[in-house]
């Protein structure tokens, strides 16, 4: 009995070890650590969209808000610069900018904001519940600062970009250090991999 258990534990550990990354990435691999992409939100065009709608594309997901003074514009700019380096592949990539400030970020604001960066950037928003669920799924959170006299308030949110392959499996977590060249190299490799492990 106990030896059987031991064998299965070793086997499990071996399988878990095999699921580890065999590719070279600039970003952090989150393969096997995070669940596949799943959500139902409203796109900036007013349509209800789900993760299924983006299967077949390499998806980059980022949480933010349009009034963001720092991380959101710089991150989206870096992603845009990375896509500019991949003219042949960019049609196979979609960047989902999930606004966690639904009170201020109307669909129109979102459309305007994302068009500043690249056509591949799509703004998404939704109910507080849907946004919290998606944030929780990717182990991140957001909260609101106190409004100033003009009613402006900051939103604290995670700063990682999550990358998913064409099957929706979680693959990479891009942090703030990666340069556009490195992001481009990772996106290229992801697109070429498709949904193969």
């Amino acid at each position: 009995m106990s030896s059987k258990l031991l064998v299965s534990v070793i086997a499990l550990a071996f399988v878990a070890g095999c699921a580890r990354e065999s590719h070279e990435w600039h970003a952090k691999s989150i393969r096997g650590l995070m669940p596949p992409l799943e959500f139902t939100l409203t796109s900036e065009n007013g349509q209800e969209v789900s993760a299924q709608d983006y299967r077949g594309k390499t998806v980059l997901l980022f949480f933010g808000y349009t009034n963001c003074p720092d991380y959101c514009p710089t991150t989206l700019s870096r992603l845009k610069l990375a896509l500019d380096k991949l003219p042949d592949l960019r049609s196979q990539v979609v960047i989902l900018f999930v606004s966690v400030d639904p009170k201020r970020d109307t669909l129109e604001y979102l459309r305007q904001y994302t068009s500043n960066f690249a056509p591949e950037v799509i703004g998404l928003t939704g109910s507080m519940k849907a946004l919290s669920e998606l944030a929780k799924r990717y182990r991140t959170t957001f909260s609101y600062g106190e409004p100033d006299e003009h009613g402006f308030y900051a939103v604290s949110h995670g700063i990682a970009v999550y990358a998913f392959d064409t099957a929706g499996a979680a693959r990479l977590m891009m942090l703030q250090e990666e340069k556009p060249d490195e992001i481009a190299a990772d996106i290229k490799q992801l697109v070429e991999l498709g949904d193969s492990p």
Partner: peptide, 12 residues
């Protein structure tokens, strides 16, 4: 432990 910066903190 930069994971807390990456994922966002519960309050600033």
């Amino acid at each position: 432990y930069d994971v807390y910066s990456v994922c966002g903190r519960a309050f600033p």
